[in-house]
């Protein structure tokens, strides 16, 4: 047990009485569980009594004293999921993993847990794997969920993922297209802009897939610096009035073909972005294959949960 690591986590939340839960969360994020020794060190460093810390840690279900597996599978057994046969899905997970709920596989790959409600009952039965939500799960999908988890959920499947779709953008000043068909990223024409930082000036190619953060550039750009974006045609600086919701750096607006504005954060490495489409289709309809033939009434704000519609 690394005492200095616990000390560092405590220092981050120093002087904050309500910081105990944040500290416990950080410890759990670091070790995957709450080691008894860490709680003792924490009691010494923060001056809370061990009893109080233990009381808080046992009160919340998200804290665990047992070492968890690499992937955490939570099956919702709330009322709505329960009536849609979530217990059978849990049994299927238990059968395929060979463990009971609350246990970890011997190879430390999977931990299986039940939760009582995730607050998204319309999507039930719900299974959450490492923060990724799977909705309307049935027993047939259990093996594919496990397969996906083994392959790594953070790898983005471009074709299958509805949240990722290509957009075509143009300069917000001169309205000339920024697309560069000669340079493909993710298999689609990239978005070409000129950037300057630290007295360097060169091109930057962004993926045109909304949701993908792949880029390539002439010079290597260090993380966390704010970069100035320019249009390669009219050389005007692409800078907007709004600030990134995640880091506060200025946003870079670009016009989306078909109507709308996409804004990306000018801080290199920050994934803040915003898409505002003023086109005919909004929400999930934008990317739906049936959007032209859909017979359901489409609300003004677009459809964001389309199971009933398609």
């Amino acid at each position: 047990m690394d005492e200095s690591a616990i000390g560092e986590i405590c220092d981050k939340h120093v002087g904050d009485r309500g910081g105990l839960i944040s500290i416990l969360e950080d410890i759990q994020a670091k070790y995957g569980y709450l080691p008894a020794e860490a709680l003792r060190t924490l009691a010494e460093k923060t001056g809370h009594s061990l009893v109080d810390i233990y009381g808080v840690a046992t009160f919340y279900k998200s804290f665990s004293f047992k070492r968890r597996g690499e992937h955490l599978i939570s099956v919702c057994l709330g009322t709505a999921c329960h009536v849609r046969l979530a217990p059978i899905i849990l049994e299927e997970f238990e059968r395929q993993l060979g463990i009971k709920a609350g246990e970890t596989t011997p190879d430390k790959k999977f931990s299986l847990e039940t939760v009582n409600c995730l607050g998204a009952c319309a999507l039930g039965p719900i299974v959450v794997v490492d923060g990724h939500y799977f909705s309307n799960v049935n027993t047939r999908r259990v093996s594919s969920i496990l397969k996906k988890t083994r392959a790594g959920l953070d790898k983005i499947e471009i074709k299958g993922d509805q949240r990722i779709f290509p957009i075509e953008v143009s300069c917000s000043r001169c309205n000339r297209s920024l697309m560069n068909p000669g340079h493909l990223i993710d298999g689609y024409p990239s978005v070409r802009v000129t950037v300057s930082f630290n007295q360097k000036h060169g091109w930057l190619a962004l993926s045109s897939l909304y949701g993908s953060h792949n880029v390539s550039s002439e010079y290597e750009i260090p993380d966390d610096i704010v970069v100035n974006f320019f249009c390669p045609h009219c050389h005007a600086e692409l800078i907007g009035a709004s600030k990134c919701a995640e880091c506060g750096a200025p946003m870079v607006p670009m016009i989306v073909r078909g109507g709308g504005v996409v804004q990306i954060c000018s801080r290199y490495g920050c994934k803040g972005h915003m898409l505002d489409l003023i086109g005919k289709y909004k929400g999930l309809c934008l990317n739906c294959a049936n959007r032209e033939t859909c017979t359901f009434p489409i609300p003004e704000g677009g459809v964001w949960q389309c199971d009933e519609y398609c």
């Binding site: 008894a36 709680l39 009893v51 109080d52 810390i53 233990y54 009381g55 046992t58 009160f59």
Partner: peptide
């Protein structure tokens, strides 16, 4: 000693 857990699993005892 202190309270541990919650709901019907709430109990009194020492840590661990």
């Amino acid at each position: 000693i202190g309270f541990r857990g919650r709901g019907e699993k709430r109990s009194i005892g020492t840590p661990f």
